[in-house]
Simulated assay, not measured.
Amino acid sequence: MRSKQDCELKAFDRLAKKIKKIFKRLPICILGDSLYACETVFNLCRAHKWKYICRFKEGRIKSISTEFKAIKELEQSKDQNSLVWVNDIAYKDRTVNLMEATMKTEDGKSKEYVFITDIKITKKNVERLIAAGRSRWKIENQGFNEQKNNRYNIEHANSQNYTAMKNHYLLVQITDIIRQLFEKGSSILKALKKTAKEKSSNLLESFRTRILTDEDFTHLSKPIQVRFT
């Protein structure tokens, strides 16, 4: 059993190479926390022709933070706005763009969210970019949190064998993807107005009793697209 986790950025580098190899022309935008706001990720995205939107915290890259703060203060002195952005901040051999949004939290307090991106920020796209950056929290709070604490309890040790632990985790990911598609991906299922528990029970029962036919395999062989909106 491993006692130390791998470096997250090194793991990201390995994963990115595999994704690029399999999906050579797929347009990808990386959403990351402030750890990913670094030259390593910037270089990797440029090499793979990917975009990125990462959370940016003061002090992560001091030169960028200082320039953004200075320009922001000049702009805000002219026009007070909850959305502020600055394009083309020089950083080594590239330029980056920063945007800041002041929003209300659930307890009614104001909180500032700052993101760094290589996408040009305009008045037309700034709200969409902010929303995209913040959507990462759905993965953390509604995704991993569900898997860890509610449905699957993966925070608990399930084996002392490292390979068995990885296999269990991968099975949980497959299960969660199937469950989400089953619960949210079909207009027919939505029309049934069943609870999540009822849908999950139906899905489990179909795995137990249904036998795949030649017609099923014919449908499975056809390429499909799954879109999330």
Rank of each mutant, 00 (worst) to 15 (best):
R134P: 02
R179T: 10
R134F: 08
K104A: 01
G133H: 11
Q180S: 06
S159N: 07
I119C: 12
C29Q: 01
K57L: 10
L129Q: 04
V86S: 08
S110E: 09
N161L: 07
R60K: 14
T163Y: 12
C29F: 00
Y152N: 08
Y162Q: 06
D118R: 12
G32E: 08
F217E: 02
I139P: 05
P223K: 13
K193A: 13
T229K: 14
E183K: 12
G143R: 09
E155Q: 09
V114D: 06
Q76K: 10
G185T: 03
F228D: 03
D216L: 04
K111H: 09
K124M: 08
I22H: 01
L212M: 04
V84T: 07
Q147F: 02
I224M: 04
R94E: 02
R136Y: 00
S3D: 01
R136G: 03
H168L: 06
F217Y: 06
F42G: 08
W85C: 07
R94V: 00
F56W: 11
A164W: 06
Q180R: 15
A101P: 01
V126P: 07
Q160H: 13
P223C: 08
N158G: 10
H48N: 13
V172G: 05
K120D: 09
V84A: 02
E67C: 10
Y152R: 04
F56N: 04
T95N: 10
K124I: 12
R136N: 01
K51V: 00
A37L: 07
E183P: 01
L74Y: 01
D79R: 08
R14S: 10
E73A: 15
L98P: 01
K92W: 08
I64W: 14
N141Q: 07
F115P: 05
Y36I: 03
P27E: 02
S65R: 12
L35M: 05
A101H: 03
T218K: 11
E140H: 10
M103D: 04
